[in-house]
């Protein structure tokens, strides 16, 4: 039963990820990306990482993708004028595949064992975030704050130039 669900989720995740880059219409590829986020959330849920799965839906599918679709609708983009050549596509695929081949085993060595004794409940994630990983957590929030302030300043300056 679990195997069937896993294969279903990962197949749809892969297909929708391919669809994101293959579909010429921007709005449809955004929809495919939303579907992909859902499948990733499902895979997280299968790993008992319930909090991560829900956060994935709230943050990526619910907030970021809404903004992306918002922008696509407002600009009413019609799609790329020219498709990249086959050689370019194959070359970029080869580079990404080689990088993944290099990175994934190292990621597994670095983080693979630490997660096994922890359940992905809200409680355990929260405890880890506010004790062991308090510094990266707070640093990330400062980083996001800097990005927000920067965005506000940049958009204000553009408005002044236009006026």
């Amino acid at each position: 039963m679990e195997d069937i669900v896993w294969y279903l989720l990962s197949t749809v995740a892969l297909l929708s990820a391919i669809a994101v880059v293959m579909i010429p219409k921007p709005l449809y590829s955004a929809f495919a990306l939303v579907l992909h986020m859902f499948m990733i959330a499902g895979l997280f849920a299968m790993l008992d990482a319930h909090f991560l799965a829900t956060a994935q839906i709230i943050v990526y599918a619910g907030a970021i993708m809404v903004l992306v679709i918002f922008v696509i609708m407002l600009l009413s983009l019609q799609g790329a004028e020219e498709r990249p050549s086959l050689l370019f596509s194959v070359a970029s695929f080869a580079i990404v595949a080689a990088l993944a081949r290099y990175i994934v085993p190292r990621l597994d060595a670095a983080f693979g064992s630490s997660g096994t004794d922890l359940a992905g409940t809200v409680k355990s994630v929260g405890e880890l975030l506010y004790t062991k990983y308090i510094f990266p957590f707070e640093a990330a929030s400062v980083l996001i704050m800097v990005a927000i302030v920067g965005a506000v300043i940049l958009s204000k300056r553009e408005k002044k130039d236009a006026a």
Binding site: F51, T54, I57, I58, A61, G62
Partner: peptide, 9 residues
């Protein structure tokens, strides 16, 4: 949180 996630969808 799940209900909140569905609300954002």
């Amino acid at each position: 949180l799940f209900i909140f996630a569905m609300g954002s969808i």
